[in-house]
């Protein structure tokens, strides 16, 4: 009986240690502790061009992370990208005329959504749409614009 009991205790300790390790991986290593799925509220923003924005990209205001990009869809009627942003429930005072931009972190970094607050006294709620958006800057388009302007100046 004694050996069976020791075995059982050791197996119990082993399984507890295994689950503890899984818990560690979930909470400390992955992003489960930060903004779990389904928390917070959703905002919808339509962009003419989202560049290379990815799902799970950060959404920030004043450089502070408020949430993340939940999904990206394509609206075939308007030929626009429909980006769903999941904002943490703690930040529920974004004005209705908030402005959404797509910026790039660093020169070659990943793209993220930056929100600039407006002045409206009303706040955005779950499922609301952000009216003012600015597309991602596409490098080729900027260079093309620059060359075009340059050529125009030369011909004048």
């Amino acid at each position: 009986m004694g050996t069976t009991r020791t075995t059982e205790i050791l197996v119990g300790a082993f399984m507890a240690a295994g689950f503890l390790a899984l818990f560690f991986l979930a909470m400390r290593v992955s992003n489960l502790s930060a903004a779990g799925d389904g928390d917070g509220y959703a905002l919808i923003a339509r962009f003419d061009n989202i560049g290379s924005l990815k799902v799970r990209a950060p959404v920030s205001m004043a450089g502070v992370r408020l949430g993340r990009v939940e999904s990206i869809a394509f609206d075939e009627a308007a030929y626009q990208a429909v980006v769903t942003l999941r904002i943490d429930a703690a930040y529920d005072q974004l004005p209705t005329d908030t402005f959404a931009n797509i910026y790039t972190a660093g020169l070659l970094g990943e793209q993220y959504v930056s929100l600039d607050p407006g002045g409206s006294p009303d706040y955005l709620g779950d499922g609301d749409q952000i009216e003012h958006t600015q597309s991602a800057l596409v490098l080729e388009r900027m260079i093309g614009q620059f060359l075009f302007n340059q050529a125009q100046e030369d011909s004048e």
């Binding site: 082993f14 399984m15 240690a17 295994g18 689950f19 390790a21 899984l22 991986l25 290593v29």
Partner: peptide
């Protein structure tokens, strides 16, 4: 369980 311990 062993793999989780290994990773941790």
């Amino acid at each position: 369980l062993l793999a989780a311990m290994f990773s941790m």
